[in-house]
Nucleic acid binder design. Structure first.
Lengths: 144, 144
DNA sequence: ATTATTTCGGATAAATTTATCCTATTTAGA
DNA sequence: TCTAAATAGGATAAATTTATCCGAAATAAT
């Protein structure tokens, strides 16, 4: 469904949020270890999230990644996905047609529209806070 | 959502079904032209569908691909997708965890379960006949 | 039989995604 | 000021997906 990059991006964001609640800035090294992702690749992904101002980075000793506490609840899963995978998940045709709309639909246009809309609603109604709290309470997990 | 291979496979199957209703066997060349796909790559995909007995092939002059008329209505979109992309779309974790189930869910497990179930229902309730008839009536299109 | 046509299947290449490496830059603290 | 720790970012490599090429095998028609 999502690219590997996007999966890492989501998990990393959750881990950063989790620690930001405690006022802890976390390093790339720690993040990669805790979400079980390749370090250098994760770095690229975090760079993208920083560029899109979804997370914050601090260079140098004692630096790392963080998210302002107040912002965590307002960051939607959709923003993270969009930052990394773009918005093709919303607009692209299920069968890869260059043009696919109501006037010129592909054979699965209507069916896909429904599914994609559900996906959109899901991504837009899930935020970082919910996900971070589930990890904190042990209701969900970031690895294995 | 689907791989390129899967997109081509679905479109090719529809085109073959469409022609099989008229008793016409169609060649790889014609298929690739009509669904606007790379010929040699499409050949590989059709081979997979033949192996899984979703479509039928006849070698040699006047050969080509076909689907027995009686079978068309019973071929589900899910079978085509499964033949080419496998069943990861059903089982895989949304965040790529190796283990992700009710006892050890990833942070988006429940949300994804819902979407994936909708997708599953959609793929299993859409069949080749419906799609072929929509193309025939001009209600949907295979290219552009 | 020969030929033309067509799928099959192995080898290979191109493109994209995923992953690694290395150097530059920034920053806190000694 | 120097050093250690950390992110930034460019270059490159590995893996996967997508795409092409070509000879082999099958088959219908001549």
């Amino acid at each position: 469904m999502f690219s590997k990059a996007c999966e890492y991006g989501i998990k990393a964001s959750i881990y950063i949020a989790l620690n930001s609640y405690d006022g802890n800035r976390v390093s790339l090294k720690e993040i990669a270890k805790e979400i079980d992702s390749p370090e250098a690749f994760t770095a690229k992904i975090l760079q993208a999230l920083v560029r899109d101002k979804i997370i914050n980075s601090v260079k140098g000793a004692y630096g790392g990644f963080e998210i302002p506490k107040e912002a965590i609840a307002s960051i939607k899963l959709s923003q993270i996905v969009n930052s990394i995978d773009g918005d093709s998940i919303y607009h692209g045709c299920g069968l890869g047609l260059n043009v696919c709309d109501e006037n010129h639909p592909c054979p699965v246009h209507d069916q896909f529209k429904t599914i994609r809309n559900e996906l959109k609603i899901m991504l837009e109604s899930t935020n970082l806070e919910q996900m971070a709290l589930d990890i904190k309470s042990g209701a969900s997990f970031l690895k294995i």
